[in-house]
């Protein structure tokens, strides 16, 4: 009933950002080191970092089929999804360890760990 590994998505919520749009608490080098560690550990499935939120566009389709496209959404809360990793590890404790090592977990940022649903 349980396979040996589970996929977890690490949703990286950026906290406060510096003038250049990067996270205030970590450097590009931190991310390079982390990315390499994830890949070297053989647990990497996929991962992307998202472009700035000002480039986001929301789409909704009303009941009558009308398409509504709006600029945004803009951050109403302090935390904005900035990127993600999908990793393949044995259990939640291991996933939490990788989340804790992620530079996005530092300071005002946070990493939300969610298992990928299996069908």
């Amino acid at each position: 009933m349980r396979s040996a590994l589970v996929k977890y998505m690490l949703l990286i919520n950026a906290g406060s950002v510096d003038a250049g749009g990067g996270a205030a608490e970590c450097t590009v080098e931190d991310w390079v080191v982390y990315d390499k560690a994830v890949k070297d550990a053989g647990i990497f499935v996929s991962g992307e970092s998202l472009a700035d939120l000002v480039t986001a566009t929301a789409v909704r389709v009303a009941a009558d089929g009308t398409r509504v496209v709006t600029d945004g959404p803009f951050a109403e809360t302090r935390e904005v999804l900035g990127g993600f990793y999908v990793i393949d590890v044995p259990d939640l404790d291991v996933a939490l360890d990788w989340a804790a090592r992620c530079p996005g977990a530092l300071g005002s940022g946070s990493v939300v760990v969610r298992p990928i649903a299996e069908f």
Binding site: R2, V6, P90, D91, L92, D93, V113, R114, P115
Partner: peptide, 10 residues
Amino acid sequence: RDARIPFRVP
């Protein structure tokens, strides 16, 4: 079960 919290001693 679903998030697979392990049964183990840290």
